[in-house]
Design a protein around this nucleic acid. Structure first.
Lengths: 191, 191
DNA sequence: GTCTATACGACGATAGAC
DNA sequence: GTCTATCGTCGTATAGAC
């Protein structure tokens, strides 16, 4: 049970946004579910968009930290990228709302001021892992964006399928299979 | 210039939905931009959701026909899947609004009655191409969903990047590169 | 079938007491 | 800082003339 009011608001907002969608969630819904009064919500957040922005930024930051940790604890690009996909799968299974809000929500539609997810810092870090893999010869030379898209694209699509509930097995059971395909798509021929 | 009222409404709705988003588009916007009166719009469509549903269904149908044509005019799974990705790239470049509405819009949020895109008939057909490729030995044996996700996932991610405007080259210039990666991800080792 | 005018409800946000 | 009560706006959908 959350005690701080801002946290209570943010967690209930996350739940409502991911289940009903941002626009179908009213401030009344948020105040009702969080048991926080209208006045208090508006004391901590400028408006409804302010709640969404705070939520979005906190998640971007969380991912940024996690990804930098992965970079510093794995040597090869192969291991780094594998760790990234494992992490994404883990979050998608344990905290589906978080994953859903991070990559399945059209932030642009209600957060026009924020940069698109793909140009956010976490995605930058993920691309830099691929770039260094190409520099070291682990990954075949080609446009970084193309390589990154191919390497991560399958896994991310798999995650959205999981969030859509169209997978009959637990997401993690597909990890090895997906990784084999993804890595083979971009690995340099000598490895 | 469209003459039939329903068509005028649908094309302006498509433009507004993809630029402003479904929820930020009001019926007033649609009547204003299409120069069709409120009464007429409600004569042809039950409500706002009815407009979106009609739009969605017409696109699903269009894709269904196009995909069946591809199946009947190409022999190998390799050629069929390549033709699919070419088609998707072509539509994404020539009619970005159509592509945007088809795969980048969260239909679930305002069309809860419709099945999710991934379980729609077009996606079924795309998966069946992969399945027959596995049966014929072109594609390595594994879960169909995993193979399809890996094969199409990269291309689709590339399309959404294009729609987001984060590509500096025209989308079609990435086609060969993407296809090489995607096919290598799933092709059986002997091919 | 097509139009204008309008009813009705819901929502975001504020005011002001405690 | 926290609350309740309320205001003004806007959007969907309908009524009813032509």
């Amino acid at each position: 049970m959350q005690t701080h009011i801002p946290n209570k608001v943010l967690t209930t907002a996350l739940n409502l946004f991911t289940t009903k969608g941002y626009f179908s969630t009213s401030m009344r819904d948020i105040t009702a579910d969080s048991a926080v009064s209208t006045g208090s919500v508006y004391h901590y957040f400028k408006d409804k968009e302010g709640v969404a922005t705070a939520l979005y930024r906190s998640m971007i930051e969380r991912m940024r930290v996690a990804l930098l940790h992965i970079v510093s604890t794995h040597d090869t690009s192969h291991d780094q990228c594998h760790a990234v996909i494992s992490l994404l799968f883990k979050i998608a299974e344990e905290e589906p709302e978080v994953m859903s809000f991070m990559l399945y929500t059209k932030h642009r539609e209600f957060l026009p001021a924020e940069p698109p997810v793909c140009s956010s810092e976490p995605f930058e870090i993920m691309r830099s892992m691929v770039q260094s893999g190409m520099d070291k010869g682990e990954i075949e030379q080609r446009d970084v964006l193309v390589a990154s898209t191919c390497l991560y694209g399958g896994a991310i699509k798999m995650i959205t399928s999981h969030l859509d509930g169209i997978l009959d097995q637990p997401l993690s059971s597909y990890l090895d299979d997906i990784w084999a395909c993804s890595w083979r798509a971009v690995a340099s021929s000598k490895s």
